[in-house]
C-alpha cells in the first residue's frame, strides 16, 4: 500500500531544553506514503536527519494506538492536527495535500515547560491526579456481582469521562491555558460512581486547588478544549466540576488527622 506518496514542508519548533531559546527550522518531508501516520512521517524525517549527522526532532510517543496519551503537538495551530477525535499517532497522511506546508509546535502553556523540541513536561497533570488521592476501597475478594447497582446511563457517562488520556491538548488549545477539561474529567469519572462518593468533597477541593497552584489559567467556557479533544471529553464535565466544587466548599467537614495506612 505504499504506492501513493506526497511531499511536504515542515516548519518545526526546535528548542534544546527548557532554558534554551527556540526557533522554527524548515525540513522537507519527501515521498511520504499517504497510508503512514503522522508520527511515521516524522520517523522518516528523523532517519534522514540522523543519516545527515543532524539532531533528530524529539517528540513524545509510545502506544501509537491513540490510547496512552503520550503524543501530541500543534499542527498548523490545531492540537493533534486537523481531524477531529484523533491523536497525532492516529492521524494519517492521506488527510494532507501534496505540497502542504505544516507548522509543528509543542503545547504552549506555563505549566507545561518544553523538555525538548515538541516534547513538554506534563507532570503537572500527574500532580493534580496525585492530589486527588485514592479511593478507600480495599482490594481483596471480588465483590458480588450487582451488589453496587449503577444505572447504565451513569456508568456510560463515567466511562465517557474516564476516556480522557491526559494528553494536554485541552490546555494547549485554550487561550487561558486552563486545565479545567482534564481536571473535570478526572473529578467526574469518580463523582459519578458510588465507589467515588466517600472522598468526593476532599478530592474535588484538592484537585481544583492543585490545578490552580500549578499555573494553569481559569476557564472562560470558550469550548476550544472540547473541540480539540481526541477523546471527545464533553464540556459538561467542567460544569459538573464547578458544581461539585461549590457543594464541597459549602459542605466539607473540617480536616482531621487520621492514621490510615
Amino acid at each position: 500500500m505504499s504506492a501513493k506518496t506526497i511531499d511536504l514542508t515542515l516548519k518545526v519548533w526546535r528548542q534544546k531544553g527548557q532554558n534554551s531559546e527556540g526557533s522554527f527550522k524548515e525540513y522537507p518531508a519527501k515521498g511520504v506514503s499517504v497510508h503512514a501516520s503522522f508520527l511515521e512521517m516524522l520517523d522518516q524525517v528523523n532517519e534522514a536527519l540522523i543519516s545527515q549527522g543532524q539532531d533528530p526532532i524529539a517528540f513524545d510517543h509510545d502506544c501509537r494506538e491513540g490510547i496512552c496519551g503520550s503524543c501530541g503537538f500543534m499542527i498548523s495551530g490545531n492540537a493533534h492536527g486537523p481531524i477531529k477525535s484523533t491523536t497525532v499517532c492516529q492521524l494519517h497522511m492521506r488527510n494532507f495535500e501534496n505540497g502542504e506546508v505544516l507548522t509543528l509546535e509543542p503545547w504552549r502553556a506555563t505549566a507545561f515547560p518544553v523538555i525538548k523540541d515538541l516534547m513538554v513536561d506534563r507532570s503537572a497533570f500527574d500532580r493534580i491526579i496525585t492530589a486527588g488521592g485514592y479511593i478507600s476501597v480495599n482490594t481483596g475478594n471480588a465483590p458480588d456481582g450487582n451488589c453496587l447497582p449503577i444505572p447504565k446511563p451513569d456508568a456510560d457517562e463515567a466511562f465517557a469521562s474516564a476516556a480522557c488520556i491526559g494528553c494536554g491538548a485541552c490546555v494547549a488549545s485554550c487561550k487561558n491555558a486552563s486545565a479545567a477539561l482534564f481536571t473535570s474529567a478526572k473529578i467526574s469519572h469518580l463523582a459519578l460512581l458510588p465507589q467515588g462518593q466517600i472522598e468526593k468533597e476532599k478530592r474535588t477541593i484538592k484537585m481544583v486547588e492543585k490545578m490552580d497552584s500549578e499555573g494553569f489559567g481559569a476557564c472562560t467556557s470558550t469550548g476550544a478544549c472540547e473541540a480539540s479533544c481526541p477523546k471527545d471529553i464533553s464540556l459538561t464535565n467542567i460544569a459538573r466540576m464547578n458544581r461539585e466544587f461549590l457543594k464541597a466548599a459549602l459542605c466539607e467537614k473540617p480536616e482531621h488527622h487520621h492514621g490510615e495506612g
Partner: peptide, 10 residues
C-alpha cells in the same frame, strides 16, 4: 502498509 510502518494495531 509499507516500509515506514512503525507498529501494528490489534
Amino acid at each position: 502498509h509499507g516500509e515506514n510502518q512503525s507498529k501494528l494495531t490489534l
